[in-house]
Design a protein around this nucleic acid. Structure first.
Lengths: 229, 229
DNA sequence: CGTGGTTTTGAAAGTTCTCAAGATTAGTGG
DNA sequence: CCACTAATCTTGAGAACTTTCAAAACCACG
């Protein structure tokens, strides 16, 4: 399913690879190669080990990236939502280092790197580098939240990181959809599902959050923030 | 303290930024800017928030990177040893995102990026990108080991990751110095010092490892590897 | 050869997990 | 549109693991 849109008309300009490029360069990127696709829920975007010389910009929806360990157990390494770029880790060796699967109906734009690099645009490469550098920084921030904290702090900092992401992309930071299951969250944070569920219940009892279906509402953002200090 | 060595004579060529460059490009990198320095134990290489447009190649020794949270508590985000490049996260915005401190007497080579980029060498940038991409991959591997595992698995996977690093840099993978304290390891892994110590004791009792001062010897590598499955 | 920092060990307290079962929700077909 | 089924989520209770607090042993350094 194709939906050809010019990059310079794309709503994701500010967060996509060409961010910061002058318009004429955007034209070049257009020609180089980008392919928007619509994916159904639970579609596999790419598989661990497969040759991959693209990154994917998430125009809508969300994905989880995961590996499968020697026991066949899935381990989620990251979630990505609107405005994220997926697949940066594969750039090193041209092979996907994880599986990537949509959590809901999603629109992703594949950006083919070999064609992009063939044009030797220092600005594009520079932006890509900055993107990876920022991701490295985010990763260690996430790592900080996971290590050395109680289960409640892990869950709260997880919710806050999504909240921040939403805000950074012009969406509400206090009300948004949580596209992943409790099991996924637990897997990602290294907790038991039951523990995650109990923490959600406790946060609701304290009226810090509320949930309706998969919509999460944060009632008291600053109170939540105080929990992760 | 300066020790001017040409990059093309440097023992770290294979792991440094110019890895993969043709000799003439190495000359260019030489001129652009690199400054080797000798640091005493516990020297601060850079501080969180300071302007930083360099990365540092570790020629010998080791460092820890850490942040200080609002309670004044140190939280170690990474250790780096011979052959690593430090400071990639700061590339995004030109500011150091962590403190960086030597764990022992160390030789680091500062590579000044603005001067490097001014020359617009696509190969250097490409290598730097690959480096970051690989780091992203390593990060999530580390993350996998931290999340979802028992304290023993965390410690064992920590030791194995250092072992692998040593091997990748031509050193023994079964006998090496652990330059960081138990407290640092505990901090990094999100465990209590006492827990780390007890695990070391248990591994020694099972004769999987032994320690003499800060030298760690792995007696049964494959047995250790089976512990982290 | 002390001295301060690091490591080790023990015992009790606290947190999280596991197992088990019930409640709720999402998806499907009639 | 409803009913049914499968999946997900929630709750409880005991077991297992990790932390905390306290104290002793060890080591590196001046």
């Amino acid at each position: 399913m194709r939906t050809p849109i010019q990059c310079n008309q794309c709503s994701m300009q500010s967060i996509c690879v060409p961010a910061g490029l002058i318009p004429s360069d955007v034209e070049i990127l257009d020609k180089s190669s980008r392919e928007p696709h619509l994916y159904n829920k639970r579609s596999v975007v790419f598989s661990e080990g497969e040759a991959l010389n693209s990154v994917f910009a998430i125009k809508s929806g969300s994905v989880k990236c995961y590996t499968i360990d020697s026991n066949g157990k899935q381990q989620i390494t990251s979630f990505h939502m609107v405005g994220d770029i997926v697949g940066l880790e594969s750039l090193a060796n041209g092979n996907a280092s994880t599986y990537c699967e949509t959590l809901e109906t999603s629109m992703l734009c594949e950006i083919k790197l070999n064609k992009l690099f063939a044009q030797e645009l220092p600005k594009v490469e520079g932006n890509l580098m900055r993107l990876m550098s920022r991701r490295l920084g985010n990763n260690s921030k996430h790592y900080l939240n996971i290590v050395n904290t109680s289960a409640e702090q892990k869950v709260v900092s997880f919710l806050l990181s999504i909240s921040t992401h939403m805000q950074q992309h012009g969406l509400s930071r206090s009300e948004f959809r949580l596209p992943m299951t409790r099991t996924d969250i637990a897997n990602y944070l290294g907790l038991a599902v039951e523990t995650v569920s109990r923490i959600f219940t406790a946060l609701k009892e304290q009226e810090l959050i509320q949930t309706k279906q998969s919509i999460l509402t944060i009632n008291d953002l600053s109170a939540l923030e105080r929990r992760v200090v």
